Amino acid sequence: MASPVLVDEPRIAAWDRRVDWWLTGLAALFLAAYAWQVLDTSLTPAGRNALEVVLTGTWVVFALDYLVRIALARRRWYFVRTHLLDLVMLALPMFRQLRALRLITVVTVLNRQLRDDARGRVVFYVVGTVMLIAFVASLAVLDAERYAPDSSITTFGDALWWTMTTISTVGYGDRYPVTLEGRLVAVSLMVAGIALLGVVTASLASWFVENLRQAGAAVERELDEVSADVDRAEAQLAAVLAELRATNARLDALERSNRAS
């Protein structure tokens, strides 16, 4: 089912249909550029600056998309109130210390491609989302922690291990962020882990309920068919009994006639 906001805002829905795939491509470019910038420690200053231009440019496009959606909205303040998270995601990365949070915008844009059929594709949705969030969070925490004093997350392997233990709510504690940006990533990851667990639990519960409902409906249909068969059998039996009575009556009449003669 489409979002209520999009149902009430046909112009925004039309805009989304027109630009979502383009924005998804930009989000993938953004993610690739950021991953390159974080993982390639041999980048020259010129290469790093070029990647920063790509990151900033794509982030600006995301911001323009948000502004266009506001301009197209019939109830603009209502749109802003119901999309506060989008606004925060676009505003916070303006601060250099929070630059990694620009990656959350990527998750938002990619998530828009699956918003209408999350339950029908729950396995794909959950697995894909976990993989994307894990990769994004690993890059973000490594970017924040790699050169921080007393940091325990200095390689991508460390970052990926920390991400998986955090998103699964296990939290071994052998790796942990020490910077503000890293801790913000950790908080976001903890919330994402709880949300994903809730999605999985709700989807499984819904699946069980639906299957039980379908099984109950199938049993009810079978009972109705059996009842109909019983009714037909009773009707046929009644017809046979009526025919037997009529035959007996004719035989009795014939016997009386023979005696009389």
Rank of each mutant, 00 (worst) to 15 (best):
A73F: 01
D86L: 03
A215L: 03
T82W: 01
F135Y: 06
L31T: 15
V230R: 04
A217D: 15
L90I: 14
T155Y: 00
V191D: 06
D150C: 03
Y34E: 07
E234V: 12
E225S: 15
I194H: 09
L67F: 07
T169H: 05
A205I: 11
M94V: 12
L31N: 07
T201G: 13
T108D: 07
S206W: 06
T108Y: 04
M164H: 13
V240N: 02
V7I: 13
R17G: 14
D231Y: 02
A13F: 02
Y125V: 03
R119P: 00
Y66I: 05
L204I: 12
D65L: 01
T163C: 00
T247E: 09
W161Q: 13
R102H: 02
L90E: 07
E220S: 15
E52S: 15
F30M: 14
T41A: 08
G193M: 01
T163W: 00
V109F: 00
T155S: 02
A73C: 03
L103Q: 01
E210L: 02
P10I: 03
A13T: 11
V219T: 11
V19P: 05
L160I: 13
A242I: 08
L23E: 04
A71Q: 11
R245F: 08
Y125T: 01
Y172V: 15
I12N: 08
L87A: 09
E234M: 10
R119F: 01
V126K: 00
T41K: 03
D224C: 13
I104N: 03
W15K: 06
R250F: 04
R213A: 15
L244A: 15
A235I: 05
R75D: 07
L6Y: 04
T129V: 14
L184I: 11
V106I: 07
G216D: 08
G216V: 10
N258Y: 06
V130I: 14
D252H: 09
N258R: 09
A242D: 13
R81D: 08
Y78I: 09
V88P: 10
L98S: 04
A238N: 11
N211R: 10
L92W: 03
V7F: 05
L114I: 14
I194M: 07
E220F: 10
M1N: 09
L87M: 05
G216N: 08
S168Q: 10
E181M: 07
T155G: 01
E243N: 14
V200I: 13
A50S: 11
L90Q: 08
W161I: 14
V191P: 02
Y66K: 01
T82A: 02
L92E: 05
N49I: 11
R81C: 03
N211Q: 06
V126Q: 00
R232A: 15
D117L: 01
E255P: 00
A202R: 12
A14S: 14
D174V: 10
V185T: 11
S152H: 05
V19G: 04
M164N: 13
T247Q: 10
D252E: 13
N258Q: 11
L142A: 10
F30S: 14
L85C: 07
R121L: 04
I70R: 00
